[in-house]
Structure formats: C-alpha cells, structure tokens
Lab assay of single mutants.
Amino acid sequence: MSGIALSRLAQERKAWRKDHPFGFVAVPTKNPDGTMNLMNWECAIPGKKGTPWEGGLFKLRMLFKDDYPSSPPKCKFEPPLFHPNVYPSGTVCLSILEEDKDWRPAITIKQILLGIQELLNEPNIQDPAQAEAYTIYCQNRVEYEKRVRAQAKKFAPS
C-alpha cells in the first residue's frame, strides 16, 4: 500500500471527524483483525431537504486505489439507486470521479460526498449510466419523482 495514499486518507479521516456536513457519514471499514482499512470507507449521503430525495439516507462505498490521490476513489451505492447517473452496479457516474475528466488530487472526501448529493437531485442527462431511470427522467418527470420519493422512504434511517 502506498504511504502517500494512507497518509492522505488519515488526514481526510481526521478532517472529517473534526468537521463534516450534518447527516453525512464517512467511516473507514475494519479489517478482520480489527485494524482500520483506510482504503475502503462506508459512507452515507442524506437526501437534500426540499427535494424528492429528502428523508432518505443512501449508503455508498468509497474504494481507494494505491495511487490515490492521483486517481479518484470508486464510489458505489449499496444497494444501487434508481438514478440516471448511477450504473446498474451502483457505481456513480460523475465527472469529478473520473481521472480523465474533472478529478483533481486536491478534491476531498467531503467535496465528493457533497457533489454526489447535488447530483442526486440534478442528474447530468449528457452522461446517462442507467437506461430506465434516464428514460423516465426525460419522458415523465412526475413518475420519476414518485419513484425517487418511494426510494427515499425505503432508505429512511430507522
């Protein structure tokens, strides 16, 4: 494992614990031996107030490669969400998460999670990743928002 990646992720964890947006979660997972795995984080993004996503808490896994922060983490909703920019596998399609697009090593975990929260309610229809959600979003916004509200209710924190 890269010392650069681990040191950056340790800084990220410290900064997150000191200050993070209300309702968001970002925690490194534990290895079988109980030690912390900084390369694999369990996160959760709350649906934004005043949107059909409100009330939901959407679980996301963030996986970092050894060359982080040169390369972005892979962000994957578990379980996958109904959304035009979420692949059926759950992987998020967002330009700041793509090395050859808008990724920059200075982007923080907090910025990534806030960017994904923004994307939930403002899909990028130029870059669809899920045919069904994309089609319904474009053709029947009322039905799309109904499905999103049902999903938010399903993923409401207990």
Rank of each mutant, 00 (worst) to 15 (best):
L6V: 11
F64H: 03
Y144G: 04
Q111V: 14
I112A: 09
V142H: 13
K76A: 14
E118P: 05
L97V: 14
F77N: 00
M39V: 13
F77H: 01
S89I: 13
M1T: 00
A106K: 00
N124A: 06
F155W: 01
E78R: 14
N121K: 10
F24W: 05
P157F: 12
K48R: 13
W103G: 03
Y68A: 05
I107G: 12
P28I: 02
T108A: 15
D102W: 10
L113M: 11
D19V: 07
L9F: 00
R13W: 01
N85D: 01
R17Y: 00
Y144I: 03
S71C: 10
G90V: 00
E98D: 15
L97E: 05
P88V: 08
R149G: 06
D66H: 12
G50L: 10
R104N: 02
L120D: 00
I116E: 05
N124T: 02
K153G: 02
W41R: 00
E42K: 12
E122I: 08
E42S: 11
N121I: 10
D33Q: 03
A26I: 07
P105G: 10
D19P: 05
N40W: 05
T108M: 14
K101Y: 15
N140D: 14
V92N: 00
E54R: 06
K18C: 09
K48I: 07
R13D: 03
Q111P: 15
H83T: 15
A129Q: 05
Q130K: 04
L120W: 06
K74A: 15
V142A: 11
P84I: 14
L38R: 00
D102P: 02
D67C: 12
K18S: 09
Q126D: 10
N31A: 08
P88R: 15
D33P: 02
N31Y: 13
K153D: 15
K30V: 10
C93T: 00
G115Q: 03
F22K: 01
R8L: 15
T91M: 10
L81Q: 01
N140R: 10
F58W: 04
C75G: 11
V92S: 09
W53G: 00
E145W: 07
P80M: 13
P84K: 00
P88K: 11
L60M: 12
Y68H: 08
K14R: 15
A26D: 04
T108P: 11
N124Y: 09
F24H: 05
D100R: 07
R13Y: 02
P46T: 06
L9K: 08
I136T: 09
A15M: 06
Q139N: 11
I4V: 08
S89V: 06
K146H: 14
G47C: 13
Y137W: 00
K65F: 08
L94N: 04
E118C: 10
L114C: 13
E98M: 13
I125D: 05
Y134L: 05
P80E: 11
Y87Q: 05
K146Q: 09
A131D: 08
M39S: 05
K49W: 08
C93A: 05
N121S: 12
K76T: 15
V27P: 08
A156F: 11
W103C: 00
Q126Y: 10
T135E: 11
N124C: 12
K76I: 14
E143D: 11
T35W: 03
L57E: 12
P28C: 01
F77L: 06
P123S: 03
N124Q: 00
D66L: 12
Q139W: 09
E78W: 11
Q139R: 13
I116A: 15
W53K: 01
S2C: 15
W53T: 01
R8G: 02
P105K: 00
C138R: 12
E12A: 01
T35R: 02
V142E: 15
Y137S: 03
P32W: 12
R13Q: 07
T51E: 02
E145Q: 11
W16V: 02
G3A: 00
P73H: 03
K49S: 04
H20Y: 03
I136F: 13
F64R: 01
Q139T: 12
G3W: 12
P157K: 15
E145V: 13
K30R: 14
P80Y: 14
L57K: 09
A131E: 09
P21E: 02
P32Q: 14
I136D: 10
I112M: 15
F22Y: 10
R149W: 10
A10F: 11
E12C: 00
C75Y: 03
S71I: 08
E78P: 03
R61N: 14
F24Y: 12
D66T: 12
K146I: 11
F24Q: 02
D67S: 13
K76V: 13
Q130E: 08
A106G: 11
M39G: 09
Q11I: 14
L81C: 05
V86R: 02
L63G: 13
H83M: 02
L114V: 15
P105Q: 03
R61S: 12
I45W: 07
R13N: 02
R104Y: 01
S158C: 08
R13E: 03
K74S: 15
D67L: 07
F22E: 01
P157V: 04
H20R: 08
P72K: 05
T35D: 02
G55C: 12
I107K: 06
Q151L: 07
K48M: 10
K153Q: 09
R149M: 09
K65Q: 14
E54D: 06
D67R: 08
P128T: 08
F22W: 04
A5D: 05
R61C: 11
V27Q: 01
Y87S: 01
I136N: 07
L94D: 07
K110R: 12
G34E: 09
L63T: 08
L38Y: 13
G23D: 01
E42L: 06
K76Y: 15
P46A: 09
N140H: 09
G3M: 15
P123I: 05
P84A: 12
K59N: 12
C138T: 15
G115N: 01
I112T: 15
P157D: 10
P105S: 11
G55P: 10
P80F: 12
K65V: 07
M62W: 01
Q139C: 10
R147L: 14
A150P: 09
M36K: 07
P84R: 03
F24T: 05
A133Y: 06
T135D: 07
A129F: 00
A133N: 01
L9R: 01
Q111I: 14
P32C: 09
K14N: 07
I107A: 13
A5L: 09
E122A: 12
V27I: 12
A150D: 12
A150S: 12
E132R: 08
V142W: 10
P73A: 12
I112R: 07
